[in-house]
Amino acid sequence: MKTDDLIALISVDARGSASPMSVVGRLVPAALIGAFAALALLVAWLGMRDMTAAVVSPSYWMKTTYTVALAISGLLVAERLSRPAASATRGIVALICVTAVMLAVAATQLLSIPAVHVPRALLGSTWDRCPWRIVALAIPGLAFTLLAMRGLAPTRPALAGAGAGLFVGAIAATVYGLYCAETSAAFTLIWYTGGIAVSAVLGALAGARVLRW
């Protein structure tokens, strides 16, 4: 076929959108399906903590605010990296800011408690399970989100996959907060962030393989 004929064909199919929401509109539903899957998994596997106590506890809201802020930053990164030639700088700056604020909160908290309690604040009682559980909860969302991303145009697949992993990892961490009763900011900073980071690495590895279009 001649290229001119192809152009004539394609032009019949004109119409579309250049809306800034067109990409978010595909990534968010996929991640939400993943979030519901994670919630179902959590309830079946670990159960939920006593939520009436949780909603009045500042530590619950501290953790949730942190993971939701990371999820929003992750979405900014994943959204930009799903578009050719778009810059993810803004999302990355947001990530750094969110982490820096959490670092300040954790440091303040550690400095205000007696030294003997510091190891407990750092490790809690679930440090060795927390990150892996977050990763497990992130996997369904990662699958759905990468699938949605395949329909977009990520020109840097590994990086885009990492963005997707970060986004769904932070959502999974938010869901995990419905079970986890750890209260310290340092614990959250280290182990929650660790689980999210592993999810981002998984996303990068998977992205490099499946994000071909």
Partner: peptide
């Protein structure tokens, strides 16, 4: 050309079209 067409929703109208097409 086909890809530009089928992935046109990934162009953000606030960004240059040429750099988007070039990246593809």
């Amino acid at each position: 050309l086909l890809t530009i067409h089928l992935r046109r929703d990934t162009w953000d109208a606030t960004l240059p079209l040429t750099s988007w097409a070039y990246a593809i």
